[in-house]
Design a protein around this nucleic acid. Structure first.
Lengths: 148, 148
DNA sequence: TAGCTGAGTTCGAAAATCGAACGCAAGGGA
DNA sequence: TCCCTTGCGTTCGATTTTCGAACTCAGCTA
């Protein structure tokens, strides 16, 4: 099975993993969550080649993670890339990466930005919980059952 | 900046994103969390080319996400790849992907496996919360502040 | 001695990515 | 009107990754 087939596997983990597991896609989403919206700005801040940037943006548009929104500047109509609701829902994925990065990849606490809860100023953390008892779960607390 | 430089950026999100954003890496981790541990089994279940599999396993070993553990079979010593504590801590990332996949990529509820909390049988869900007030957070609830 | 098996390594072909140049439409200014 | 700039891509040849099949090697087993 080539890589691309994971994108159509009947598995709700492998399909997102195949989509976001393409080179640049996670970094592109990071940039979007940090507020970048325009082609030129992605190109400038990430130094990704223009053709690959075009491709990744198109894949995310096609998957309905992003949408193109027209806007006006200097009396001209242009387009910017913005998250859809589906795209905004990827926030926990990025936050899980960051929570992990803070714990395991930050020897000197350096960070390029801070995150705060607007209402109370607290920090931000991703976690896994049980939908019934609301306990926080680790891999060891979870039983995997193969279907069929 | 080439892709590889994100791996050394002073950002606790971009470094994990660059590491897990390489082709095959997320799918490999999925397989590991599902219990696969041996080279031949990765190769058989994912149909990844042997040389790329070698490379990805080595990167994860080097990052201390995986460790090689000797075991005996048929009186021979072999090695298997197992998660370290750092690796097990990636569970929320995979669960965030799955939570998203269930909501947005499962038109007919099909799944190749089920997950249950061992203690109470409940489902599993990733979420983002405030470290102070424990409120569940979305991207809109969080303020981004650039450092420096 | 020969064969099998798990775990890679090697290597030529194919695919993805890169960087630099080009295209193009919509202003703005002369 | 003509030329220049800007934002957003597209094209294309060179480089890097990935692929797939064959090869290697060590330790059993027959």
């Amino acid at each position: 099975m080539p890589y691309s087939n994971f994108a159509s596997m009947p598995c709700t983990l492998s399909r997102p993993a195949a989509l976001l597991g393409e080179r640049w896609t996670l970094l592109l989403l990071r940039q979007i969550f940090l507020g970048t919206r325009r082609f030129e700005d992605f190109q400038a801040t990430m130094d990704i080649s223009r053709s690959v940037l075009t491709d990744r943006l198109n894949v995310l548009l096609q998957e309905n993670v992003l949408k193109r929104v027209p806007y006006h500047e200097d009396g001209r109509t242009r387009h910017e890339y913005r998250l859809t609701e589906k795209g905004r829902d990827l926030y926990p994925v990025l936050m899980a990466l960051r929570t992990w990065g803070e714990k395991w990849m930050a020897p000197d606490e350096e960070e390029s930005f801070h995150l705060h809860h607007r209402d109370c100023g607290g920090g931000v953390r991703a976690k896994v919980e049980c939908t019934e008892c609301a306990a926080e779960l680790t891999a060891r607390d979870v039983q995997v059952t193969a279907r069929q």
